[in-house]
Simulated scan of single mutants.
Amino acid sequence: MPTTTPDRIDFRQLCLRAVAYILLIAALMEGVMMEAQRPIEQEFSELGFTEFTQTSLLVLATGLALYTRFRYRQLEHVMLLLAGLFGASLIREQDKWLDQFVFDGAWQALVTLLAVPLLTVVIRRRRAFVDEMASCSGTFAFGLFAAGFLTTYVFSRLFGRGELWQAMLAEGYVRVFKNAAEEVSEMFGYTLMVLAIVELLLLIRRRVKAAGGATT
């Protein structure tokens, strides 16, 4: 009989989560479908479903990362860095409103104020950070996060390039196609990263339980 370890996920639980994650993604895509049926000038705008969902996912991811760090005190440097990443992305998503109502370039200033102290802490405690990364790099949660990170910060940027869509659509090019491709793939990446944080939280809870309930 195989030995059960905290890093392993029970098959039944894995199936239940798979169903839940599929339903979540399907629900989000239904929202995208509803947005696509709006007048073309309102599709994938700053006030649309996709942009609102991206902001909501980033708020949720930041909150979960901070909760996990302060509640369990495990993977605290990893969680601190993740909270900073999601927080910076959340600020970046509000660039239009910050530029309009605060000042031009406000989001860059806010991201800098957030990132510099967090990176300083992680760099100063880099050995602890590396050890924490090693302890979770082979987990399901890490795989989800890596997929989400690559989807959001690499794939969506390349897939949403205007010149790519101009080359594919030629004289039929309409900017909304480019916007839809970039924003929807970005939203999917954020979704994967939220699920990764959920999985990290569940992983830590399993480890704490296996260790007898100690949270530090």
Rank of each mutant, 00 (worst) to 15 (best):
P2E: 07
T5E: 07
D7A: 13
R8V: 12
D10Y: 09
Q13F: 03
C15P: 00
L23A: 15
L24K: 04
M29F: 15
E35G: 08
Q37G: 14
P39I: 02
E41M: 03
Q42M: 13
S45D: 11
E46F: 06
G48K: 07
F52R: 12
S56C: 08
L58C: 01
L58G: 00
L58R: 02
L60P: 02
L60H: 03
A61K: 00
G63Y: 12
L66W: 09
L66A: 11
F70W: 12
V78F: 12
G84V: 04
F86W: 07
G87S: 10
S89C: 12
I91H: 02
Q94F: 01
D95K: 01
D95Q: 03
W97C: 01
G105F: 06
Q108M: 11
Q108P: 02
A109H: 10
V111G: 02
V116Y: 00
T120L: 12
I123W: 15
R124H: 09
R127F: 10
A128P: 03
A128F: 06
A128E: 15
D131F: 04
A134Y: 01
C136W: 03
C136Y: 03
G138W: 04
T139C: 08
T139F: 07
A141G: 12
A141H: 05
G143C: 08
G143Y: 05
L144C: 12
F145M: 14
A147Y: 02
F149G: 09
F149A: 15
T152S: 15
Y153E: 08
Y153Q: 05
F155P: 01
F159C: 01
R161D: 11
G162M: 09
W165V: 07
A167Q: 10
M168T: 13
L169C: 08
E171P: 09
E171S: 14
G172D: 15
G172I: 00
V174F: 04
V176K: 14
A180E: 05
E183W: 09
E183Q: 13
E183V: 07
E186G: 03
G189S: 11
L195I: 14
L195Q: 14
V198I: 15
L201P: 01
L202Q: 11
V208M: 12
K209G: 06
A214V: 13
